[in-house]
């Protein structure tokens, strides 16, 4: 075993440990902000896995899209929604948790048997040293052209939809004053006038 292999095995172990423990933290921690930050750690370790698989472009894209955009947006959403609500502890809370654990264990068992029973064709050939960016680009514009273009249309639709939702003035106000529509509003604190801020000054920010 030479140096490169040793480094690869050690980093594989470290990345796996980091990914699994961070993912468990995302699911199990009570504080949603911790969960969001740990999600970033999960995405980062997945990027590390891609690096170990010689997919450097995919690793950088993973970092840019998932850590730099998706996770930042999640954090933004958490920090901007100033919802304060005291949750009443449920009497039979463990039933839900137990059911979730059972479902997860079943899924894990299924996947594990699939991984163990599938005859993987592991190639011993050295990965090609050609730039991965070039390879991905070639695939995008030859045999994966249709999915690539469809995904771009999908993204455009999502973008237009997001802009329509964000610009409230486009949507006509249909019965916004009626009573039954109140349940669909975001459960935010009511907007306070600036002068009233001094009374609520002891509130901590959005935590």
């Amino acid at each position: 075993m030479n140096l490169a292999q040793g480094v690869q095995i050690v980093s594989l172990g470290l990345l796996t440990l980091m990914m699994i423990s961070a993912a468990l933290g995302v699911v199990l921690l009570d504080n949603i902000v911790y969960s969001a930050f740990l999600l970033g750690a999960v995405f980062t370790s997945i990027a590390g896995m891609y690096l170990l698989l010689n997919a450097d472009f995919v690793a950088a894209a993973q970092l840019l899209i998932y850590v730099g955009s998706v996770n930042v947006l999640i954090l933004f959403a958490i920090m901007l929604v100033n919802k304060r609500e005291d949750f009443v502890p449920m009497t039979r809370g463990w039933v839900r948790k137990g059911a979730t654990a059972a479902v997860c264990a079943g899924l894990f068992a299924l996947l594990a048997t699939m991984v163990l029973s599938t005859p993987w064709s592991i190639s011993e050939a050295m990965p090609s040293t050609e730039s991965t960016t070039l390879q991905i680009g070639t695939h995008f514009f030859t045999d994966f052209l249709l999915p690539f273009e469809l995904v771009s249309v999908l993204l455009l639709m999502a973008m237009v939809g997001a802009i329509v939702i964000a610009r409230r003035d486009i949507i006509p106000d249909i019965g916004s004053a009626s009573e039954e529509n109140l349940s669909f509003q975001l459960p935010e604190r009511p907007r306070e006038a600036v002068g009233a801020l001094s009374e609520s000054g002891s509130d901590s920010t959005g935590s």
Partner: peptide, 10 residues
Amino acid sequence: WISLSSVAPI
């Protein structure tokens, strides 16, 4: 560089 600089906001 672009993708690394997108981590800093976190």
